[in-house]
Nucleic acid binder design. Sequence first.
DNA 1: AGCACGCCGACT
DNA 2: GTCGGCGTGCTC
Length: 833
Amino acid sequence: MSAAANKINNSSDLFSQRQTGVLFAEIIIPLALPQNYTWLIPFHLQSSVQTGSRVEVQLRNKKYAGIIKTLHTNKPAAFEPKEILNVLDTEPLVYPRQLQLWQWVASYYMCSEGEVMHAAVPSNLKLSSESILLWNEEHGLDFSDLNDEEYLVAEALELKKELRLSEVQQILDASHVYPVIKKLIDKKVCYVWEELKDKYKPKTETYIALNPIYFNEDKLADLLNNWSKAPKQLELMLAYLHIIKSEGEVTQTALLKKANASSAQLKGLIDKNILIAEKKDASRLPMLPRNVSVEFVLSPAQEEALQKIEQTFIDKQVCLLHGITSSGKTQLYVKLIEQYIKQGRQVLYMLPEIALTAQIIRRLQKHFGGNIAIYHSKFNPNERVEIWNKVKHGEVKVVLGARSALLLPFKDPGLIIVDEEHDTSYKQHDPAPRYNARDTAIYYASLFKAKVLLGSATPSMETYHNAQNNKYGLVELNERFGEGKLPDIEIVDLKTVVTKDKSKPMFSLQMKTAIEASLHEKKQVIIFQNRRGYTPYMICSVCGWIPQCQHCDVTLTYHKSKNKLSCHYCGTNYPVLQTCAACGSHNFIQKNFGTEKIEEAIVEEFPSARVARMDYDSVKGKHDHDNLIKIFEQQRLDILVGTQMVVKGLDFEHVNLVGILDADALLSFTDFRVNERAYQLMEQVSGRAGRKDDKGKVIIQVTNTNHPVLKFVQAHDYKALYDFEIDNRKLFFYPPFSRLIHITFRHRETHLAEEAANLLVQGLPTLHKYITGPAEPVVNRVRNQYLWDVLFKLPKDAHLINQCKMQLQQQVVIIQSNKRYRSVDIIIDVDPV
DNA sequence: AGCACGCCGACT
DNA sequence: GTCGGCGTGCTC
């Protein structure tokens, strides 16, 4: 939509109203307000307002930069709108499509549009006001009625005429600033002024240019040949000429560095008017040439997949690319992105985690140079504003980013790639908007008639379901790129392994032999165990009592390094128990094993191997994870023991063995989500084994050897898993697939939060109530004892619940409660769009 | 988000 | 008696 059309939606009507001076705006304020509020546009600002522009408004006694959602002429009946104070933008900050997206996200994920705005707009563009105290000249110099503290502030005010809040805090040592200010206002010593501040500061850089009179070559040669002055200045001149030739422009920093000179020496030349210094706005984003070069050749399998995707996009909006690990999905993406750039459209490439963007960007910059930018929430605010503007103006063609990149003001996106679409990090949990970026991307794309490519080696069930039912296209890529083959998967029956104390064995003979073989070949090994800590649970040998968390009813895990019992659900630590709380005996047995214990056992069993552990406990620091991966990549480690964390990050070249020590912990017959997750984990971990010349091997140790999911993993057969799950769900009258949204009720009293949640559930149509078994322990208690007895028998109540009911035509899937946070979450199952 | 209001326990 | 904690409600 053009700016002009955007400005006046209903032109003749609005135009005449502008003449008579009655124009209103519905404005989005970046707060969690119950709805958008309406302000009056005063006559003198009417020619400059546009939907999507920021305006300065006052709410209560603070000023905010809000965004105009709509302009209209309907005077609100219930209240007298205030006037907007100012228009902050000459061109809109977002396009109407973004406003449409915000509205959808707000209604779909039950939050305010302001909260969506808050998540979308870089903080530097949101500006909120700072209070400034102004000296009241009429008060005079009589301070006799003031106490000591008030006197101090009043004196400073009289002197400086105005004070910032932060300055007052310095005068009064922070703790009780507000009461003093309030008194001063009451006594009419000062009054308060709110000032909106624009926090975005363009970065300036000094550029050096040659005085135009030396553009003539003779004159320049003359100047240089007859150089009798300082040799350093000559060096500077030569450096200048060198840089201008190779780069086209010269910054002061680059010049000084090249000539190894000081700014004083440069100033000499500037004073002589040979060189000219000039300050210009500079971009914080590194400038790269903006050409596109995609020269590699796809394998026949990739080529076929690419063509299938293109065909799918002819009549379908969304396509799932189900490609096994190392099948070269990224290369396909690159080819597709190239096509869309050539059409002049933008592309968004989403990854589930910020850490992954840094690894992929290098590969993409090779092909797309300055057309591509990274964006995620950890960027500093000024950089975010710059990318925001470049995306808005279409200067940036490709954005690589985490979920927040979806909220950028794209002008004309043609393609959104959601890589690793099954990854649950796409779902934002806290704070609002609790959106799933994958699902939101599908809606967003529909606004632009853009295409969505979902890529994964282990798709989520709901995406696969949509592909099976022809809602999405499905393209499969079953070949590893190059010479690589999928690893063989061997399943070892743990029942055949005998141990002295009848506890679960850690390593079977097969596992030990394979590890030795890998070490011998100088290859690397990954050992996977989905349990951190030392001992997953302690049990009293006399009465069978198991220590549990006071808050969560969850079994406590023993951590040897901390020498603490720890709850993995809420994180509380407890001292190690010596005495059984039930029978008073002192004999505890340690059951099972976690990563900590495995690491210890490996050091003992393979003393020559270099071992490290990667789990939540060992990689606490910001860069620990990256460092560990780097060390492992460089083969400075032989064996890596880890939890599911080892699936993240890029490929390891030299791993040829993956061991899954206790697959039983992953498998279930009744809980669908668990099986889906188990398949994903095992498939992804397996994918780490083997590369080009080396097929690689996976050993899965398990007691429950006839669990169907194991067979599917062994055959790398995702379709079989899907069919199995579909049948399973029919058996339990569970809806085939769900997309989840999250509502949290919090209250000091847990039961009140639960009641609120229950009332909401009750408001939903009976046919759509489905409650299933999630993994969280407390849920089982809630589900079994509370839910069925109480939930559906509560007395009806409340217009609030009805309001929610109107908003939701959705289905309840899980109710979980958590004592520690005294909250109840309802996760609601919806089928969007 | 802020900020005012009101309720309840702790204390000069 | 009041000070200050927190829960609740309201903002165009």
